[in-house]
C-alpha cells in the first residue's frame, strides 16, 4: 500500500465521530480527547520527526522528574531506557526508508517542569502521534514495530497516571 494511495478515506468528521464512539464509552481518563483533532501526516519523515520531537520532550520531563523526586529512582531509568529503545526503532525505520537522521536529543534542551501532569500530557501527545502516524508508513513490518512502541508508551502513561493518583491521595 502506498501511503498516498486513495482508499476509502473517511472524512475528518467521520473519524471524529468514530473516535467519539470509542471515547463515549471509555473513561475520559484515557485521555484520547485530542483524537477529535486527529492529525494527518503527509510523509514518513514528517511523522518520524514529530515522534522524535515529542519523545525528546518526554525524556526531558522524565529527567527532571527523576532528579527532583527520590521516589522516581527506580522507574525513571527504566522509562528512559524504553524511550531510548523506541528511538532506535525509529532510527531503523529511517534507514529502511533511506530518510535523513532525526534530531539529536542532546541538542534539544529546554526548560521543563518536574510536574507529573506535564509528563503525563507529554506521553499522551507522543502516544497519540504514534497512533495518528501509523497510516503514513504503508509497510506491515514498520506498522507492527511502531505499534509495539506505541503500546509501551500507553503503559508508561498509565503508570504516570497511577503515580499522580497516589501522590494526590
Amino acid at each position: 500500500m502506498s501511503p498516498t494511495e486513495p482508499q476509502l478515506a473517511p472524512s475528518r468528521r467521520q473519524l471524529i465521530a468514530r473516535g467519539g464512539l470509542v471515547l463515549g464509552a471509555a473513561s475520559m481518563s484515557s485521555g484520547l480527547a485530542p483524537f477529535a483533532q486527529a492529525k494527518d501526516y503527509t510523509s514518513r519523515r514528517e511523522a518520524l520527526d514529530a515522534l522524535d520531537r515529542l519523545a525528546i520532550n518526554c525524556g526531558m520531563r522524565l529527567g527532571v522528574v527523576g532528579r527532583t523526586r527520590p521516589s522516581a529512582s527506580v522507574l525513571v531509568p527504566r522509562f528512559l531506557a524504553a524511550l531510548s529503545k523506541h528511538r532506535q526503532t525509529r532510527d531503523d525505520v529511517r534507514r529502511r526508508f533511506a530518510l535523513p537522521r532525526g534530531v539529536d536529543p542532546a541538542r534539544q534542551l529546554a526548560e521543563v517542569e518536574a510536574d507529573l501532569p506535564g509528563l503525563r500530557q507529554a506521553l499522551d501527545d507522543l502516544m497519540i502521534a504514534y497512533a495518528e502516524s501509523l497510516p503514513v508508513f504503508g509497510d506491515s513490518k514498520v506498522v507492527s514495530r511502531l505499534a509495539i512502541d506505541m503500546v509501551d508508551v500507553s503503559r508508561l502513561r498509565t503508570v504516570i497516571d497511577l503515580w499522580a493518583e497516589a501522590e494526590a491521595a
Binding site: 482508499q7 476509502l8 478515506a9 473517511p10 467521520q14 473519524l15 468514530r18 473516535g19 470509542v22 471509555a26 484515557s30 484520547l32 483524537f35 486527529a38 502516544m127 504514534y130 497512533a131 495518528e132 501509523l134 497510516p135 506498522v143 505499534a147 506505541m150 503500546v151 508508551v153 500507553s154
Partner: peptide, 14 residues
C-alpha cells in the same frame, strides 16, 4: 485501510 488502521491504533492503547 487508513481509517481502520487509525482506529485500531487507538483501540490497542486502551
Amino acid at each position: 485501510t487508513n481509517d481502520y488502521l487509525l482506529s485500531a491504533g487507538f483501540i490497542v492503547v486502551d
